[in-house]
Structure formats: C-alpha cells, structure tokens
Design a protein around this nucleic acid. Structure first.
Lengths: 206, 206
DNA sequence: TGAACAATTGAACCAAAGTTCAATCCGTGA
DNA sequence: TCACGGATTGAACTTTGGTTCAATTGTTCA
C-alpha cells in the first residue's frame, strides 16, 4: 500500500466529525466525513474506503440500517460503530452482523485506535482473499459449460470412466475436457483443483 | 434425540433461577440451576448440557470469565447471556467471544425462546460436526507416522515419484503406504482424502 | 456465408497409480 | 528370545490418467 488507509466517518454531530477527522489525519490516515447515512450512500460508489466509523442514532436512516446497506454492497468492508445513544440490543445486533467493534462516546483514543487498527488489518486480509478469489474466478470463468460440468464430476472423486458413462460420452472426451480445464485454469493436480473449486463454491456432482 | 435438551442456568438470583427453570421445563426442556460460576464449574464434568444461560454480574467469577472457562473446555457449547446489569462493552465482548445472544432483564419470553431455539439448533449442528470429526480423527489416528507423512505429501498434490525422491525411498514404498492409508481410513479417492485431511487440519508438506 | 469456437470421437502412446505376491530388516512387547 | 507389526523393496501386472494427432459436427459471430 503506497497510500494511507482511507476512513469514512458517518455521524450527524459536526463537532465529532471535525474532531475525529483531525485525530485520524494526525495518524496519517485519510478521512472523508458524512453528516448522514443518506449522504454516505449517495457517495458510496465514488470513494474507495478501507473502513467506516459510523454512529447508530442519526436523523433519517439509522446506523444499523446503513450497516445492512453497506453489507449488501461490500460484505467484507470493516465497520466500526461509535455512538453515544447505543443500547445493548443495538450493539449485539451490530456485532452479530459483523461489526468489528461497537464503541461508546466519549471514546478512549487508544481504544479507538486499537479497534481501528484491527479493522484495517482484517480489511486488508479480506482484500487479499477477495483478490485471490477474483483471480480464481477469472480463470475458472473461462471454462465452457461442458468443461465445468466435467469438473464438477471430477471434484466428486469419480474416475473418468464413470463420468463418461453418466454423461453418455466416451472416456476420451472426458480426458480432453479435463485437459482443457487444466490448460485454462492453470491448475494441474486434482488436489489443487478440489481446493480451488471448493473456494469458488463450485459444487460437486455425486 | 430421544431426550429433551438440557439447559444449564447460572444466576445468583434464586427467584430468577426458579422462574426461568419453571418456564423452560414447561417447554419440555430439562434444566439444572447453579447459583454461581464456581458452582457451575465444579459440576461441569458431571453433566451433559446442550446450552447454558448465564448472568454476567455475579458475586465471585463473572459471567464473562465463566464464558472463557467454558469455551476452553467445550468450545462449541452455545451460551446465552441474560443479565440485568449488562453494559455495551460487556455485550460486545460476549458476542465477539461467540455468545449466541446477550439479552437483558426483564426478558421477553418469546425473545428468550427464540434465542434459545437458535442456540440449540447451532449446538446440535456443532455436535453433528464434532461427531463426524471424531470419526474421521479415529480413522486417521490409526495411521503410522510414516503413513501420515506420505499422506501429507499426497495432499500437497505431489506424484508418488516426487514423494519417493523427497523421502529417499522407492516409489513402490510410497504406493504401499498409500494403499495402507486408503485401507485404514476407508477413503479411496484423492479428492476425499484432501477434504478429510483439510477438515482434520492435517497440513500438506510442499 | 465463412471463420472461430465448443463438443465430440478415435487411435496410439506414455506416465502414473493401484494391486498382488514375496521378501528383508528392525524395534517392541510377551 | 521370539513373534508381531511397521517400514522397506522388488517384480509383474492392470487400471487409470494424460498427451498428441487427426477428424467431424454444430453453433455463433462478424
């Protein structure tokens, strides 16, 4: 990462936005502030955030509703709640929905920074995972429908002969399809094929 | 399951123990009550619980500390917090540590039963998973050290020839070891071998 | 319509894996 | 000490998998 992480802040309290923005920028972080959930969503597609710090109780859409919206768009983007009007049920819901933490105002700076660091670490890991997955998806996306079908039989552990019988084609055809699969995906061993297919959610045909 | 689920309740309030026990028993659930975390831990080995409902603030060991103790002994046993003196940080900590829910007194009966049902469902699933894992562990535990070593090379996707070279033995030896592995574990295909080894945390040797 | 691609098959061949029978060597426990 | 199980190897064999060359059919896209 050549650029510092970019933190989004959503809170209806201008004083907090200002103070928190100043604090984070002093830690060499980039920040973008939003006064409401709606303002944030309107800008969502235009910015590339690494973490979002959001209030729960705001006029208009609540922080918890915003969490749902964000989760639907970018499931692995780490969220940090920071609120003054929070309740236990709210915090439980937020954490169960995947929030990294749920802090209460006034917040201890060290506590906030610790949570933020954790969020950024998790987000970075999630990004690496997602990138690997995208690469895999690209390579397996090149497979034809038939090749994918053969693959799904292969990762069920069937021998070529059985696959050929089930598909009503010759064993040679299966071999060619398998060859194409390894060519297109770059995955040569059955072992790696199983792991890759499992990660991509490709289901075996038993 | 012929027997109804068995719920443990840990709370320092005798009135709550009594009321909650009555409620759960009316729902065809078995219950066992404990007045303190210490009392619960002393009895832990003797009972077979499916879920535990526990208070946070109790004289002596707190509910959160008890959660740690329970988690160390039975990581997948579902926990449900039910407390009157809870705080947001407590609830966040509990949920992050894996608690199914964190409810506040006075609790809505329907809410409690919903959470409890979810806890029991999760616990039952965890039990099924654990049982499958135990069976697998048994079968793979029969492997000799050498056979396990060969297996770890196999699930790295290496051909027998390469494994033989790395271990400084002949290819025939590897074949025999592999045959023993499939005999002892009952797993015939490489595909199934990879999945089983991965679930057991058996690491490949690359 | 012609080019390009997917799917299919056959033949022949080589490499890898699995099986069976037989044998040797080494440590551990009875 | 002797028997037993684990590790090792060899030989011979079968099955399965992977590769190459060549060819046919159907569909789709320009």
């Amino acid at each position: 990462m050549t650029e510092p992480p970019h933190i989004g802040i959503v809170d209806d309290d201008p004083a907090l936005l200002k103070a928190l923005g100043r604090l984070l920028r002093s830690q060499k972080l980039r920040t973008t502030s939003y006064a409401s959930a709606e303002a944030f969503l309107a800008d969502f597609e235009n910015v590339d955030l690494d973490c979002i710090i959001l209030d729960v109780s705001m006029p208009g859409m609540s922080g918890l509703a915003l969490q749902e919206q964000i989760h639907a768009r970018r499931p692995r983007l780490p969220l940090l709640f920071l609120t003054g009007q929070g309740t236990i049920p709210m915090s439980v819901q937020a954490v169960k929905a995947g929030a990294v933490d749920f802090l209460t105002k006034p917040v201890d700076q060290a506590e906030l920074m610790t949570a933020l660091e954790r969020a950024l670490t998790e987000g970075a890991q999630a990004n690496r995972d997602a990138q690997e997955l995208t690469e895999l998806r690209d390579r397996f996306g090149r497979l034809s429908a038939r090749e994918l079908e053969v693959l799904r039989h292969v990762i069920a552990g069937k021998p070529n002969k059985a696959i050929a019988a089930e598909l009503g084609v010759s064993e040679q055809t299966i071999k060619v399809h398998r060859m194409r699969v390894t060519q297109k995906t770059g995955v040569n061993s059955v072992v790696a094929l199983v792991r890759a297919a499992d990660r991509l959610g490709i289901k075996a045909i038993d």
